[in-house]
Design a protein around this nucleic acid. Structure first.
Length: 385
DNA sequence: TCTGGGGTCCTAGGACCC
DNA sequence: TCTGGGGTCCTAGGACCC
């Protein structure tokens, strides 16, 4: 039935990563209920310590609610530069030891440890790696060991915090069977809801739904559900994959209809991501503008363009899309800009568009951005593009 | 309790071409 | 003039993850 050789996958996940980093930076935060979340009243929880979870605080919850549930918690806004640095540190530790690894997010890794059994027990090896990560970075990490990515990840989630779990080959299905369906990665609120209406709340019940029914109801992902319910997942550990898009968005502390302000935000967001593009020596051929109104209706407009990383061209196009899109004169909650269809390429000089003076200016601005960070400087006239 | 910001992937409908 | 069938690209929206 399956011609693939047996695999051994280790999934590692840093325990409440942002919280752990904050506690390394400031040891007074140890043992204190701690919430990391966006600034302002409109933020959500991006990480919370285990002391707060007892009170019902969880990730992605509005900060306002989290404060009500756990009034004595310390709330701080994140330091993403520090998180990126610690993430890199842990990546370096893993790379030293792991034959083949995938960094699947800022705090998660998959290692393909197939064939390692013959040399040294995988469990022993992964346990040693866990100790080493803690020793070298100060960060607690949990891991799951299983025959595929899906089951190893669920195992890690069950083992957290500061734990580890091994699922013997062939026992994948029985491990998952008693769990509520939402514990399966890729089953979010919508899919859970749909399954609930089909009378399915646990994995074992999901296994009773015939394959063709799942496919009819959920399309392509129906087949995935059928497989996952049985602990089947043949997806490979992918060491590296090219980034497909770069985006930036901003939610306002208060909704607004100030068009001049909104246009200036479009320009700033565009300049920010265009600079990121140039730093990576990439060009984009598609730009998307997003508007979210106060009632949370969200609409996007995208357009294909000639490959570019030019602030001026991109901002002009972004503003044109915004003007096309924003015709309702309703209160706006959020604006976003995204660049996709990325390719490697030098910065194109547009002979008929940029004068020599303008190019000099653009390069001078970039050197300031390199030195002080992308957000430091913007084109004041940009709103008029 | 009114819901962030960074991403990826999938789907459905329409345009366009042969 | 009522009208084919397949392939591909583009756009808009939505689900999901951390």
């Amino acid at each position: 039935m399956n011609h693939l050789p047996d695999r051994t996958i280790v999934h590692l996940d840093l325990d409440s990563f942002f919280v752990s980093v904050e506690r390394l930076k400031d040891s007074r935060l140890k043992g204190v209920p701690l919430i990391i979340g966006g600034k302002g009243d409109r933020g959500v929880v991006s990480s919370c310590s285990y002391e707060t979870r007892k009170f019902g605080v969880s990730s992605a919850m509005p900060i306002r609610l989290a404060r009500q549930l756990c009034p004595h918690a310390t709330v701080i806004s994140g330091d993403f530069e520090a998180y990126a640095q610690y993430s890199q540190l842990v990546t370096d530790v893993i790379r030293e030891d792991a034959p083949l690894y995938e960094k699947s997010s800022i705090d998660e890794f998959y290692i393909d440890a197939s064939g390692m059994d013959r040399f040294i027990g995988c469990w022993k090896w992964a346990s040693a790696l866990k100790v080493k990560v803690l020793r070298e970075s100060g960060l607690p990490i949990s891991f799951g060991l299983a025959a595929n990515k899906l089951v190893s990840k669920v195992a890690t989630n069950e083992a957290k915090p500061d734990g580890s779990m091994q699922i013997p080959r062939g026992r994948e299905g029985e491990f998952l069977a008693p769990m509520p369906v939402w514990k399966i990665p890729m089953i979010g609120t919508q899919t859970s809801q749909s399954l609930m209406h089909m009378g399915v709340s646990r994995v074992i019940e999901l296994r009773d739904i015939p394959k063709d029914v799942l496919q009819r109801v959920f399309g392509k992902s129906g087949l995935m559900l059928w497989n996952r319910a049985r602990g089947i997942d043949e997806s490979p550990v992918v060491p590296y994959s090219e980034q497909k898009s770069v985006s930036s968005e901003r939610t306002f502390s208060q909704d607004t209809i100030d068009v001049y302000f909104l246009r200036s935000v479009i320009v700033k967001l565009t300049e920010k991501i265009a600079f990121q593009l140039r730093k990576q020596h990439k060009l984009s051929a598609c730009i998307t503008v997003k508007v979210r109104y106060s009632n949370f209706d969200t609409i996007t407009r995208q357009e294909q363009i000639a490959y570019t990383a030019s602030d001026k061209l991109l901002a002009r196009k972004a503003l044109a899309l915004f003007d096309k899109l924003y015709d309702r004169r309703l209160l706006v909650r959020l604006l976003g800009v995204r660049l996709s269809h990325l390719v490697y390429g030098g910065h194109q000089i547009h002979l008929f568009d940029d004068t020599e003076k303008e190019l000099d200016l653009a390069q001078a601005l970039d050197s300031i951005r390199y030195k002080y960070g992308g957000g430091i400087i913007h084109n004041a006239r940009a709103v008029c593009y």
